[in-house]
Amino acid sequence: MTGSPASAGLALSEDAVFADFAARVDLSGAVVAEIGGSVAVETTERHGVACWYAVDPNRAAYTAESGRYRVLRARAEELSLPDASVDAVFSSNAFQFLDVASTLAQAHRVLRPGGLLYAHFGPIWSAIDGHQLEYVRYAGRDLVFWRDTYLPPWAHLAYERAELAELLAGALPADLAELLLWHVHDSDTVNRLFFEDYVSAALGSGLRWVEVTASAQLDYVISAPFDPSALRAVTEEELTARWTRRRGRPTQIGIRDVLMVLRRPD
């Protein structure tokens, strides 16, 4: 295993993530299963793939005119592909929404011996903004976490429900405050896994670990609409100790982006 949970050198754009993947896998004539379906048809065909399966339960089934790009409307946990049928599994910004252990079991099944799984995901639940706010719709539009910074830093890890409800009620319209509170405490949008949970799932997958790299880098400013005196002063050290106690095992706080590269044994 290479890489470090403290490393900050991860690619953050989807184009840069794909470029890193393409530098590791010879895509000419390859069969690839993509979990999440974010790569454009033109990109896959420019690299000469034999077939690119975009696995996404939120997209309609589709086959490109060339036949080399296909959208499979399916969950990653239930891949409808034959055993040992793909050369690589690729994913960008999807693993935080999945049952990771089930998805890795499917990846192990569909990968050919020696095949590579490349997954870049984030932010995850251990991050300062791990609530994935862009999947909340309010006032006729989808909110996005880097622009609509309505939640304070560490809202999901530092505040109990009643505390967060009181804070939001004092600064936001009632319907927005209620929606945000539901999203943080009740929504199942994200899987609420910490970094160590991904590690455990990978180690139990039967795939060999090639690389793990993680970063705590935040590439935008959180400017939530609260009086600073109303915010709780918290540190990562405090949150680490709190969640280690709650979970009964060592837990790192602050990791926002992760690259996980695994290989099916020959």
Rank of each mutant, 00 (worst) to 15 (best):
P5D: 09
S7K: 04
F18V: 08
D20R: 09
R24C: 10
G29W: 11
A30R: 10
A30C: 13
V31G: 02
G37A: 14
E42G: 08
A50M: 14
P57W: 01
P57L: 06
N58A: 13
A60M: 12
A61P: 04
Y62D: 08
L79G: 00
P82S: 10
V86Q: 02
V86L: 06
F97E: 05
F97T: 00
S102H: 08
S102Q: 10
L111F: 05
P113N: 12
L117S: 02
A119M: 12
W125R: 00
S126L: 01
A127C: 11
P152N: 03
W154L: 03
H156R: 05
L157G: 00
E160L: 15
R161L: 11
D175W: 05
L181P: 01
D186R: 04
V190R: 00
R192N: 05
R192M: 01
F195Y: 15
L203K: 14
S205M: 01
G206V: 00
A216T: 10
L218E: 02
Y220A: 15
S223V: 13
D227F: 11
S229D: 15
L231K: 02
L231C: 02
V234N: 02
T235Y: 07
T235L: 07
R242F: 11
R246H: 13
R247I: 08
T251N: 11
I255S: 00
M260F: 14
R263H: 09
